[in-house]
Write a protein that binds this DNA or RNA. Structure first.
Lengths: 126, 126
DNA sequence: TTGATAGTTGAACATATATTCAACTGTATG
DNA sequence: CATACAGTTGAATATATGTTCAACTATCAA
């Protein structure tokens, strides 16, 4: 059947649109990078860390105290955030200070927060 | 010890900053909503679906064919996206057509994509 | 009504991942 | 040097989640 795709269990309904969309799809690697970026932000502990860091740099112990969690779990999550270029750090004596890495991150973070807050306000009205 | 937090295994190093940051933290529920929003975008299948829908609405079979996946898995993921108000759908005859839900989503999505692409270009230069 | 196709859904399985725990490194101080 | 504290890290465990499979509903056409 010409309309069957080897890797798919159903027909192509709009052949041209499918072909066109296929041609415009980004590389798999790009999709993986984008989804990975969101995945890193998709954890409430990490989001709380970002809120805490939104206005000031903080050391691991202070973050742990703000969130009421162990320094180990915070350190693990900071490591994830750092490896994904979402926070950066500097050591000063015994402490390591973390802060948001760049403005793209702040922008995405703030747009998303606004989106979620506005949506929840909409839902209250209904 | 006055400097120990009941739920944390380490000292408060900067007492004032910790207190101030604690006071400025959003509600747990808000953090959960924000992280959940990102979590939904944090999967490569769902990101591919959003890329496919970025310029035109599509039915389930066509999306499945573009991604080379079963209609069942696509339908499961569309359901996740729909429940989180990221896509919307309309039925027309036997087909159900999906499209991006609102402009906030498009904005976050596009800023993040730009961010990831620019970052990967930076890395190529180095 | 019957058959065909589009799409949905719940359960099961396999994989991914957040936290805990314990051991470790790095730095300052006595 | 030894001690104390800040922070990191790897392994283990418990939980979350994406895909598959099979059964289901919805719509159209004969």
């Amino acid at each position: 059947m010409e309309n069957k795709n080897l890797f798919c269990d159903c027909n192509i309904i709009h052949k041209e649109k499918v072909q066109k969309t296929k041609n415009n799809m980004p590389l798999d690697e790009t999709c993986a990078d984008v989804s990975n970026f969101f995945k890193v932000l998709g954890d409430s502990t990490r989001i709380k860390i970002l809120f805490a860091l939104d206005n000031n740099e903080m050391c691991v112990c202070d973050i742990a105290n703000v969130l009421g969690m162990t320094k180990s779990s915070i350190s693990h999550q900071l490591s994830t955030l750092r490896l994904n270029n979402i926070v950066k750090c500097r050591r000063d004596g015994k402490e390591v200070y973390y802060s948001l890495d760049d403005d793209h991150v702040r922008e995405v973070f703030e747009v998303a927060t606004r989106h979620v807050i506005e949506r929840s306000e909409e839902n209250e009205e209904v």
